[in-house]
Design a binder for these strands. Structure first.
Lengths: 205, 205
DNA sequence: GTCTATAGGACGATAGAC
DNA sequence: GTCTATCGTCCTATAGAC
């Protein structure tokens, strides 16, 4: 709150640097291993100084979470932008956020698996996620309108199945071979094939 | 090692009780939140006394992990036992381990998502998991032999896809609605439908 | 906005008495 | 096998000087 309300460029740059370091630490010691002490050490300042920027360690988690949600939404939009509306754009957008998750494993774990006991993201931090779901629904609707998917694809069950397929590949990749790249990974190599099962599950007509 | 080598019934019962309490604590404060201090408090003993049973807190994690793997393998075998070999037994076994995971969310997180930094399961604890994969492969082979699946279902890619489908539903359930039952959950209700996509992906002939 | 100093805990683990 | 006592380490967070 107070940390993000001062919007001078200098202030913003410092906050970004703090979040960058936080992600680095999470990559080293686990998402739940971020502490004010470790963060201060990485920034070469004393722990009390950090409290001028964030009121608590959970506030740092929330800021990393919020930035990750914004980046994830941006990745979706960038993926969708290159394709024409409908099924092609849907799979392009899904692939884009999957690739974002693979290249940002720390943020992905924080966003989608909540491995930090006691941490509850703030509603503001969650807002981009809600927006992404809305745009995803809209894109499924476009695909249905173009007779590329059955109408049931837009149902609650359709979203549940699409999410299961998407996060199934990602969770297996992040749990078993987080170091491999998108093109090398055994799971990520099957991503497109698994997502195409969504079309199989909801064929047009 | 020393903790499990003494095989008197009395000793075994105490160890089981300690593991039961450990799972309860993990359910309350998160899988990574288990500490010797908390465990001792729950058992109404002093922390140093615990070291007569387990040499370190990671050894407790390993024991919970090992017991979970054994139970998961037992659930698979029980599910398979009721059906005739082939596709029916395969889906019955998969459903059984999925239901086991839903009713044992703590163990499932520990087994399949490794949320405890610094914890590496011992080879002995992993053994049942290797055995389960072998039996799973074998059952896929039976289904292929009965012309219920394409031969490619037994390939490395086939296992990757099956695992993604299975853990996709489970990870969404455990992350988003761990409190709901198998029959109520939005994700678990789609489990069978998602697993059936494996057959769609590898149709016979 | 940075620091020193510090309060106040929790934790893993060991030593050694009983 | 249980305990008390204890060491050493890490942590969050605050007070207050500069």
């Amino acid at each position: 709150m107070t940390a993000t309300s001062r919007r001078t460029p200098r202030h913003e740059a410092t906050l970004e640097a703090i979040l960058d370091r936080s992600v680095e630490i999470m990559a080293e010691v686990g998402v739940a291993g971020l502490t004010m002490t470790r963060l201060a050490r990485a920034l070469s300042i004393q722990p009390p100084s950090l409290y001028k920027w964030f009121p608590s360690v959970l506030a740092v988690h929330d800021a990393v979470f919020a930035r990750g949600q914004r980046a994830n939404l941006a990745a979706w939009r960038a993926g969708v932008a290159g394709a024409e509306s409908g099924l092609v754009a849907l799979t392009a957008g899904m692939t884009a956020i999957a690739q974002w998750a693979v290249t940002h494993p720390v943020e992905a774990q924080l966003l989608f698996w909540r491995p930090v006991p006691g941490f509850r993201p703030s509603p503001e931090a969650m807002a981009p996620a809600d927006q992404l779901v809305a745009e995803l629904r809209e894109m499924i609707g476009h695909a249905i309108a173009r007779s590329q998917l059955a109408g049931e694809a837009a149902s609650a069950e359709g979203l549940v199945i699409l999410a299961s397929l998407h996060f199934g590949v990602l969770s297996q990749h992040l749990a078993n071979e987080p170091e491999t790249t998108w093109d090398e990974g055994a799971y990520t190599r099957c991503y497109r094939r698994v997502i195409d099962l969504f079309i199989t599950a909801f064929p047009p007509q």
